[in-house]
Each structure stands twice: as structure tokens, then as C-alpha cells.
Design a protein around this nucleic acid. Structure first.
Lengths: 364, 364
DNA sequence: CTGTTAGCGCGTTCAG
DNA sequence: CTGAACGCGCTAACAG
């Protein structure tokens, strides 16, 4: 409530001196500083950040815009961002777009109005409009978890292609050949990349992908449920499912349970995205574990760098490796004379080292 | 980049007229309004919220301060808050205290500096200092998920006592008498209330609680793990565990698995807090399901009301009912001659209606 | 080491 | 219906 002039009056100095004491800028004598500090304490003075922002044109705030704040992958990223930002006295605004471009634009507009110093963005889909908007207002941005066309823009993400490759390679080594891929929407680069990794792993062993087994619908449990139901009707029925994220995997598991199909006995299931340890009673799913905390931390670091040191400069593409974690949900395909005509293919040997090579891919 | 004067110049009017058009206040002729709007579009003018805030003393922003943003209970609350706030054109800042009083105070100070219009607070522990700080700066607050002493302060939470009572009553009806309680820290009202409900349910059937079976340590998986290990050494060993939240339950399950104890065959486990459907492959845990989304929504509603209509007035205590969801983790105690000398107690009959009475408790 | 002057971009107030 | 003047609280740029 008290403002800088009240403090100045009480301390018998000018408001400029108070400002210097508060911000630790310029020189002040021990004695006046002590007087000012006493006055600040007495009045319970708290500087008005709004006025400060107006003057200095810097809000000392960044924003993190994600598609789904209930997904632990994104909340873990948020923790990383928060830790990095707090360390440098930056505040963070979290926004949730629900994978809607319209909401994304609406939030960005709000953030621009509020003069945030920078934005960490997980684009809902085509980031084009959003990036243009931010650029027009000279707001630096770091894109998280997605590829973007522009070479000018900073990017931090997991290597989706390599991760997907490793997962499918793992299935192939177990002997699977008929593998369904349940993915997110086509507009999202992670969907595309994960499918690409899937195709590469299968191509390597000479399997031509049946495009009816590759479904793009959405990164939520409901989409997973419906996609899984569909592919269960395929002939021959696949012996394994690759879910492009954790929620799809959950939905798929539910569909399998409904249909009385056991995992991994009748069907293997692997997924991109782990769940935090604390969530899983019995870690069961074979997954690619993404370094979510580090992604958040690194992204915030890149952004804060742009805000201080290097405002311009080419975009840095930071591609972190995921980690293959093999658990109980994947096993060799059943040898029973199932509907699958290819069930007898044996595991591929001697390629383990290769499958794991993706672990060292960080390019940033 | 363009400011209100640039628009004014281009439209050939004063900046005041632009202000009126932008805010829809006062009168403006059709014609000038059209001219102004064209100029706005042409320049890509976006009003500067910071300047506006400085002038109007209102930031149109509220904050949600929680103890753990990775807990789905809190992210679901966040969704409720966000939806309610966005509907009224308010922004939301999310902050994470990690159950630390120091971080809580630090965040509140930041929020006060930024002139947030109000705060939704899940206190780390004793909310005293925080509430005093907010009060001193005239920042309205609604406390979420906790009781507070003051009758002046708005509060939105689940009825922890009644929920705990229902869960333990359920165990009692199954025949359990020797039930361990693994809870959060004593300073947190939910811990106290859940233990109170536990005591009431046991007292009703004449069981005196062995205080060595009531542990207060923390609302995280690690605490759950360690508490469960401890009570496994008790003689007689309890036949059931009541975990005061979802994370404690996970930790406890892990301890049980380590010890080769099957659930519910050898030990029943029930918990406060459900998990979102999308996360649980096989819903298994008997729980109290809290209306998290509604809690967030209602809390935001109360706060926004204070910001507009009723700035003063007595605190409203909004206590919502939880819902008992019985699943597979609870069963009658084993009849085998275990270490438990009381294993043979039969289920209590005819009290189902009573146990479920807590469902209608909303007092707000 | 400290003070003075000016103005960030907007909205309130009061005259036209 | 429109405009001119003023100030929100703070700090950059310059004196002293």
C-alpha cells in the first residue's frame, strides 16, 4: 500500500535513492541504506511490479503454454521450468490450451498484452499463426516437444523418431511383425516422427507397413480406446500395439481388457511416455521414458538466455534422448495358431546394441 | 508495439476516443468507431495491460498456489479454476510451494508485487503468516482443501472427516478391527480430520485405537513406503491400511509388494483421493473420490465474487462431500490363523446406509 | 554518493 | 459525442 515516496519521505531521502536500495543498483552509503531499509520494514513496503514493468518494459515473467496440464509429462516439464525460472527471479504463468489452436491464440494474445518477456510453447498443432503472432510482437519463444519449420526458432524435445524406432525394434526382436500403431493427430510433429520411427524399424526387417494399422486420432485415453477397438477387428489381428503416448496406452489397455485379451500373453503393448514412479503401483508398461524435467529446465534456460545475453541468433535445436525401459507388457508373440499367419517368426538376434544407440542423440 | 496514440493519430482522433472504443465505455459515433477500429487492425494494436493495470489498480489476474502441481488432485482443481476464470476474462498464475512455508511466503510476496487481484491458496501448513500477509495488503483469499481458524476466510474443501469415516466404516463392516492409518503431517488439517474420521469409525464399534498404528509423516509416496514398512512390524500386524492420500497408498503398495503381501488377500488397502480414470489401467483401489474440478471451480467463483460484488462479509465455508468408491483392494480379513489375534471378527451388518450418509454433507 | 527531471501507456476528470 | 490535462508508481538519464 505504501509507495516509494512514502518510504523516501520517512527515510528523509529521494525516491531515487530508495529505488537504488531496493534494486541494488548504483552506489549508496551504508548509512542511508540502513535508514531506507528501516523505513521499508516499518511501512511494510512492497515495490509495485506493475509500475516497474511499465517503466522498464520488462515483466520478469515468462509463460509456459501446454496442451494438457493434467498430463504428468507436462507437469514435470512445468517443475523444471519453475525451478530454472525461480532461480533467476522470474515468475511463470501456466496456460492450458486443450490442444485447441483457438485457445492457444487467445492465451498468447493475453500474454502479449501482459508483456511477458518470453514464451515456452507446446503448440496445439500448426504453430504457424502462433509463432507469427509472437514474432510480430518481438516476444522470444522456445518450442517444446515439437519440431517447427523455421530454423530461427529454439526447440527442445525428445527424439521421437529414435525412441519409436527403439520401441518397435524391441518388438521386432521379440518376434513381432504385425504391429499396430496408435498415434496422435497428424498435424502434430511427434505423431509423425513416432510413426516414422515405427516404419524404419519395420522396414529394416523387410516388413511393409499395412497403413490400415496406422491410426492417427489423438493423444487421449478415449482415442486410444477407440483406436484399439478398431485394430482388434483387423485380419490378421496384430500381435502388438505401439501407443504413441501414455494416455493412448491406457485407453488401449482398457479396450483389451474389455475384449478379454491378456497382456502380454495375447498381445504386447509398448508406449511412448512413462508415468512418474509415484503413480504406478506396479510398473508394467514397456516405454520410452522422456527426460521431462530436463526438457523444462533446458527450455527455460534457452529462453532466459535470449532475454539477456543473445537476443538474436539462429535457432538452437535441442534434441534429448529418451530411454527405453523394458518391462512386463512386451513379450514374444503367442505361438498358438492364432489368426495371425506370421506368429512363428523368431526374434531377431544380435541387434540389441543398435536398438539402444538412440540413447546418445542429444544434439544440443 | 503500437500504442494508443499511434492509433489515435492514424484515426485522426484523440487517444481518449480510442480508449473508449477499446473498452466500450462512454459514447462514440458509429463513424469514428469504425475509423478507430480500422486503425487498430491496421497497426495490429494490442492494449498494454501493464499500463492499464497501473492506472486501474486491477490486474484482472488471480493466483492459484498449491503444494504439488504434479498431483492430479491439484491439476484437476487447476482446470476448474482456469475454466471459471477464463469465463470472466481473468488470467491465472499457478504456483507450486512443495509444501514449504518459505516458498509459500516467497510466492505470495511475488504475487503481491504483481498486484494480483486475489489468491486461491492451498496452505503448505500453518497458514497464519500467509493469511496475515495477504490481509495486510488487502488481497482477498480463498483457502482450498484445508480448514483455517479464522471465521472471516472463505474455504472450499472436501469433508475429510466424513470421508475417512466412510472408508474406515467400510473396513469395519468387512470385519477389520486392526487398521493402520498412514497420514500426512500433523500441521495439515486434512491429516487431522482424516485421523478423526478414522477414530470415530473405530470408536463406534468399541475399538480403542492403538496410537502406534497412527503415523503422520507426509503426503508423498516415499513417506507411504516408510510408514507401511514400519507398521508391518507391528504385533499383531494390522489387517488393513488406510492411506490418507493417493501417493501414500502407492508407497504403501510398494512396501507390501516388497514384503510379498498380497492385496486384498493378506491386507486390505483403502485411500483418500482417486486417480483420474485416464491414468489407471485397472481401477483397483477402494477410495474416497474428491470433487476436485468442482472445488476449483467453486473456489474461483467465491474469489471472483469478492472481487466484484461482496468485498467484505463473513467467510463462507464450502464443504463438499466425497464419494466412496468400493473396488478390489478391500476385502474381509484373512481367516487364516495369522499373527493377528483378532482375525475372526465378522463383518458388521445393517449399517451400510449410515456409512454412506456422508455423501450429502455440502454446507455451502 | 544523491537528487531532479521526465515520461513509460493508459484511463479518470472535467471542459468543451 | 470528443478532447486536454493530469497522474498511477517507478526508474533512465542526467546533473550535482
Amino acid at each position: 500500500m505504501a509507495n516509494i515516496r512514502d518510504v523516501a519521505r520517512l527515510a528523509g531521502v529521494s525516491s531515487m535513492t530508495v529505488s537504488r536500495v531496493v534494486n541494488g543498483t548504483g552506489y549508496t552509503s551504508q548509512e542511508t541504506r540502513a535508514r531506507v531499509e528501516r523505513a521499508i520494514a516499518e511501512l511494510g513496503y512492497v515495490p509495485n511490479a506493475v509500475a516497474r514493468q511499465l517503466r522498464s518494459k520488462r515483466s520478469h515473467t515468462i509463460a509456459l503454454v501446454v496442451t494438457d496440464i493434467t498430463n504428468p509429462f507436462f507437469t514435470t516439464i512445468a517443475r523444471g521450468v519453475e525451478d530454472e525460472a525461480a532461480g533467476r527471479d522470474f515468475g511463470v504463468m501456466f496456460c492450458n490450451t486443450d490442444e485447441s489452436d483457438a485457445e492457444e491464440i487467445a492465451y498468447l494474445q493475453m500474454l502479449i498484452q501482459r508483456q511477458v518477456d518470453g514464451v515456452l510453447l507446446v503448440p496445439a498443432s500448426n504453430s504457424g499463426n502462433s509463432l507469427r503472432l509472437l514474432h510480430a510482437h518481438r516476444v522470444p519463444v522456445v518450442v517444446i516437444d515439437r519440431r517447427v519449420r523455421s530454423t530461427q526458432i529454439d526447440e527442445v524435445r525428445t527424439d521421437s523418431e529414435a525412441g519409436a524406432y527403439a520401441l518397435v525394434r524391441h518388438l521386432v526382436e521379440l518376434g513381432h511383425r504385425n504391429i499396430a500403431m496408435l498415434s496422435g493427430r497428424r498435424e502434430i510433429s511427434t505423431s509423425v516422427d513416432r510413426v516414422a520411427g515405427y516404419r524404419r524399424a519395420l522396414a529394416e526387417v523387410g516388413v511393409e507397413v499395412d497403413s490400415r494399422l496406422v491410426l492417427y486420432r489423438g493423444y487421449d485415453a478415449d482415442a486410444g480406446l477407440r483406436m484399439a477397438r478398431e485394430i482388434l477387428d483387423a485380419t490378421p489381428r496384430p500381435t502388438a500395439i505401439f501407443a504413441a503416448n501414455n494416455f493412448i496406452a491406457f485407453g488401449a489397455m482398457r479396450a483389451l481388457r474389455e475384449a478379454g485379451i491378456r497382456v502380454p500373453d495375447d498381445m504386447s503393448v509398448v508406449a511412448f511416455d512413462d508415468l512418474p514412479d509415484a503413480w504406478v503401483m506396479d510398473p508394467f508398461m514397456t516405454v520410452i521414458n522422456q527426460p521431462a524435467y530436463d526438457i523444462g529446465r533446458r527450455a527455460a534456460e534457452l529462453l532466459l538466455e535470449r532475454l539477456t545475453a543473445a537476443p538474436a541468433g539462429a535457432g538452437r535445436k535441442c534434441v534429448l534422448p529418451g530411454k527405453l525401459v523394458v518391462r512386463g507388457s512386451s513379450a514374444p508373440p503367442s505361438r498358438l495358431p492364432a489368426t495371425d499367419g506370421n506368429g512363428g517368426a523368431g526374434p531377431v538376434r544380435g541387434t540389441g546394441a543398435r536398438a539402444r544407440r538412440h540413447e546418445g542423440i542429444a544434439r544440443c
